Simulated scan of single mutants.
Amino acid sequence: MTNYAALLRGINVGGSRKLPMADLRALLTGLGYDGVRTHLQSGQAFFTTGDGDEESLAAGLARAVEAHFGFRVDVIVRDHAYLRAVAEACPFPAAGLEARQLHVTYFSAPAGPERFAEIDPAAHLPEEFRLGDRCLYLYVPDGLGRSKLAEALSRPRNTKGLIATSRNWNTVAKLVELTAGG
């Protein structure tokens, strides 16, 4: 049995694509998953299963959400070991930063540096980013809301063909905690 987090992109924001967490928990339980929990209203669900891999679990959950709720949602599923490795590999001093200053964008597949080659890092200082394994770390000292670097990184040409969803550092840490089990 493996502990997973499902990251649903773009639900419960701006009054659209409403997906109550109680309904999401019921849906996951109905799919046969154990230990189902959710965190916040922004699309983090946790479950345990011995069946499938990250990609097939994500695709199955996306299909189930569309069938049950009537709208399509992008889903990334990652196991505890991966989520822990992402947190441990953070190239920025997470312990000394506010959660709003540090974010991780999780990608559905690897995103090589060529995707972001047109972005001049020096032009965005003190904001910075680093690529990780199927993720991107983003340091924004003034927060994400006004970040020009975040805007540049999220342009469609940079994420074409990928599902990408971002979480602040508090949520990154909670993903590790809630998939730890025990």
Rank of each mutant, 00 (worst) to 15 (best):
A180R: 12
L144S: 12
A123S: 05
V176I: 07
L125T: 15
A109P: 01
L19P: 00
N158P: 02
T179Q: 02
L153K: 06
A94H: 02
R155V: 03
L131E: 09
G132M: 10
V104F: 09
G43I: 09
F92S: 05
D133P: 11
K148Y: 09
G35R: 12
F47V: 00
A122N: 06
A45K: 02
E128I: 07
T159H: 08
C135E: 12
E88T: 06
G132W: 09
N158L: 04
L27R: 04
A62R: 05
E127H: 08
L162P: 04
D23W: 00
V75G: 01
L178Q: 08
G132R: 12
A5T: 11
F92I: 01
V104W: 07
S16H: 15
D120N: 15
L28H: 07
P93H: 10
T2D: 14
S166R: 09
F116W: 06
E88N: 14
T48W: 13
E54N: 15
A89Y: 01
A59I: 10
R157S: 14
P141R: 13
L19G: 01
G52Q: 00
R167K: 11
V13P: 03
I76M: 11
T105P: 08
T48M: 14
T48P: 14
N12S: 06
N170F: 12
G145E: 05
T38Y: 02
M1F: 05
E66M: 05
F129L: 06
S166I: 02
G143Y: 07
A64T: 11
L24K: 02
A45I: 04
R9K: 06
M21Y: 09
Y4L: 05
V73H: 02
F92T: 03
I119T: 05
G182I: 04
T165V: 06
L153T: 10
T105M: 15
E118C: 12
A122E: 12
G14E: 02
L125D: 12
G14T: 10
V73C: 05
E98P: 01
R9N: 06
L125W: 04
R146A: 15
A117Y: 01
A87W: 02
D142C: 11
G132T: 09
P156I: 01
A94G: 06
L24G: 02
R37T: 13
G50S: 11
L125H: 10
L19S: 06
G181V: 11
S166C: 10
S56W: 00
L125R: 13
S42H: 12
V36K: 03
L131C: 10
A45Q: 04
G112S: 12
E151S: 09
L40M: 08
D23C: 00
K18V: 10
G112K: 12
A95C: 02
G30W: 03
A99S: 15
G30T: 03
Q41C: 02
D51M: 14
P126T: 05
D79M: 01
S16W: 09
S42Y: 13
G70F: 00
H80L: 00
P121T: 13
D34Q: 14
H103K: 06
G96T: 05
